[in-house]
Design a protein around this nucleic acid. Structure first.
Length: 666
DNA sequence: GTGAGTTGTT
């Protein structure tokens, strides 16, 4: 195998040392001394000097010193000189098993999978017998495809029960698609399980989303053996598979136990859980905790903080972390750009996009473009967005993914260019998913293009690529043109196909606890007070001229029942709870898993006006900042804005402003 | 003289 050209010039060469050591006037240290020097060498230059010395000594130490060769390999690798380190094996005649295994390990841990396999094959053909070290190293380079062959070799050499090899196998089976069956087979046969092998198996379960199995195994590990990695895997497993509350609870449990000490990874996983449920107070607490403990604020921790603050509704704090970050990589920039975009600060997002390439000298990635296109879509910057989309391929050589097409379709759709958006979906090189269709359908509803909307929906139902949202949108479209037969038809279709509308859940964090509400929920301890407040809110806004928009209600109900069903939408329960449990004038932060319905959007604007409260609401799509009767999203639907404006103008004529805040928030 | 499990952005 040929070594890389840089190596032959930058590594000391044998031919440079033509004379013996005595001729150069030095007495070379003995091999043992050189080995010690290599182990504690602090610079590459020193390693190179020692390397040169070893080569000189080789003149009378033949063939070569295998231990020194190995130490040299490790010294180069530890200074990040991977290619120097690997080229040593190519310059060695008949490398021994130690050097082979070490080199395979270096290649594997540095992502040079092909190199690792070439070395492995070279080893096999050299009649050297691989051992457990070799396999634990080569397994790190295995994919789900190649693992079967290597597993066979493992069995052939009788190493299937070695704890390191078996752990490696479990780890590979857990990666990629995740072959739990094979992973479990290996794991079950292990005569002795260490915390490391159990953690590999827990990871495998967690990656499958089987958090119950993961937790069960985690609980089986004796408490004294659980190290921080196993806690991290479990916390992150919850956080990444739809159990953010469990992740936070487990983090609290870890703190209560006092050991092991949380590290950078623990806080990144926990912050991600906070972002998902909008637990701002918990997120802030963790930020303080990081500052107080010895946790390094590295770029990943910074990014997790930026993401947490922006997703929890505090863009200001996200910006402050971003500005103070000592080092920012493209991921950190992406998180900040996405933060601006989701809050509707589109100009700032675009400014950052320029700064990132200018002062910071970083190249945008496909994710940067998702964020910037979203910024354009949220602000209705159609021309900028289209230009951005085109430049992505033309100037940056980034192939658009379905997410980018999604932004483009939403951008054009919202602007009323429905036909053009439709054409884009039809001409994409990939299959459209339900997300992109829902976006176009939403625009059809927004723009009142019932004909196109109906055509698309029927096509989707025929092709069976629907989600519950498709049916809801279709029903809403029928309702908006008062076609109640159509509404009934959709309803029976949903019943027939047993499609259940995804339940809307709204959450609000009060006193470091997250309170969740579903529509009509009566599970909360203060349910009685909450409903009293809900009714009070309805009376107030109705007395100001608000009329419920019952078209948004899908169920077959009488008009008054429809009103009642709107009244107890999850976001209204969350707002009511916020009003009775926080100080007057303090902002409310509400989080919803679905998009806020247009009626609730109107109502929330009115409540913000009457109570003088700022209400920040995060829905599936973006943030809405309700202040003094208007919303930062610029009202995603026309009728909604007209309704609110009318109500507010009539109301101020009656001179009723301010009553609410005195009577209801004391 | 060699080896194991965990982390961020849509």
């Amino acid at each position: 195998m040929a070594s890389s050209p840089i190596l032959t010039t930058s590594l000391p060469q044998k031919q440079l040392t033509t004379s013996s050591s005595s001729a150069a006037g030095f007495r070379l240290p003995p091999p043992e001394k050189l080995a010690v020097l290599l182990d504690k060498s602090e610079s590459v230059d020193l390693v190179k000097q020692i390397h040169a010395a070893i080569l000189r000594r080789n003149l009378f130490l033949h063939p070569y010193h295998p231990v020194l060769n190995l130490k040299l390999h490790r010294a180069y690798a530890s200074h990040g000189k991977i290619h120097h380190s690997l080229s040593l094996i190519h310059q060695t005649i008949d490398p021994d098993l130690f050097l082979f295994s070490a080199a395979i390990n270096t290649a594997s841990t540095n992502g040079l999978r092909d190199q690792a396999f070439l070395l492995y094959f070279q080893l096999l053909s050299s009649e050297t017998v691989p051992n457990e070290f070799t396999f634990s190293s080569i397994l790190k380079s295995c994919s789900t495809q190649s693992v079967k062959a290597v597993h066979t070799h493992v069995l052939k050499f009788g190493l299937g029960l070695d704890p390191y090899v078996a752990t490696g196998l479990v780890d590979v089976y857990a990666r990629g698609g995740g072959d739990v069956v094979s992973a479990q087979k290996v794991f079950d046969r292990m005569p002795e399980r260490s915390i490391v092998s159990s953690t590999a198996m827990i990871t495998c379960y967690a990656k499958q989303g089987n958090v119950e199995a993961a937790r069960a195994l985690f609980e089986r590990v004796p408490e004294t053996e659980r190290d921080i990695v196993s806690w991290n895997v479990m916390i992150d497993g919850y956080a990444q598979h739809g159990f953010p509350c469990e992740a936070l609870m487990l983090f609290r449990e870890l703190l209560a136990k006092g050991r092991p000490k949380p590290d950078e990874i623990t806080v990144v996983a926990t912050l991600s859980a906070c972002s998902q449920i909008g637990a701002l107070e918990s997120g802030r607490w963790i930020h303080v905790f990081i500052k107080r403990s010895r946790i390094r604020v590295n770029v990943k921790v910074c990014t997790a903080l930026i993401d947490m603050y922006s997703k929890c509704g505090s863009l200001e704090e996200a910006v402050s972390v971003f500005n103070d970050a000592p080092r920012k990589d493209v991921v950190a920039w992406n998180a900040m750009i996405a933060g601006y975009a989701v809050h509707g600060y589109s100009q700032d997002a675009l400014r950052l996009f320029d700064e990132m390439q200018g002062t910071a000298g970083l190249q945008p990635t496909d994710i940067t473009f998702v964020a910037t296109l979203q910024a354009c879509a949220h602000a209705g910057l159609v021309e900028e967005g289209v230009r951005m989309f085109e430049s992505m391929g033309q100037e940056y050589g980034i192939k658009p993914k379905i997410e980018h097409y999604g932004c483009l379709v939403s951008l054009l759709g919202r602007a009323g260019r429905l036909k053009q958006a439709y054409e884009i979906i039809k001409n994409m090189e990939m299959e459209a998913d339900s997300v992109i269709w829902s976006s176009l359908l939403g625009s059809c509803k927004l723009r009142g293009d019932f004909v196109l909307g109906k055509e698309i929906t029927e096509y989707l139902i025929r092709r069976n690529i629907t989600n519950s949202g498709t049916y809801v949108l279709l029903s809403n479209m029928y309702a908006s043109v008062s076609d109640y037969e159509g509404v009934a038809k959709v309803r029976s279709l949903m019943k027939e196909k047993t499609i259940v509308k995804e339940p809307g859940v709204s959450a609000i964090e009060v006193d470091d606890r997250v309170h969740e509400f579903r529509a009509g929920d009566r599970n909360h301890l203060q349910s009685k007070e909450i409903y009293t407040m809900v009714r009070k809110m309805s009376e107030r806004i109705k007395s100001c001229g608000y009329v419920p928009d019952t078209d948004a209600v899908l169920q077959d109900l009488e008009e008054t029942e429809k009103e009642e069903s709107l009244e107890v939408h999850s976001e209204r329960l969350a707002i009511a709870y916020g009003l009775i449990s926080t100080k007057p004038g303090s902002p409310l932060r509400i989080f919803k898993n679905l998009r806020v319905c247009s009626d609730c959007h109107t109502v929330t604007k009115l409540i913000s006006k009457i109570t003088g409260r700022k209400i920040v609401m995060r829905d599936r799509n973006r943030f809405h900042h309700f202040v003094d009767g208007s919303c930062s999203c610029g009202d995603f639907c026309g009728p909604c804005k007209r309704r609110t404006d009318q109500i507010l103008s009539d109301w101020s004529k009656k001179g009723k402003a301010g009553i609410w805040s005195r009577s209801c928030t004391a």
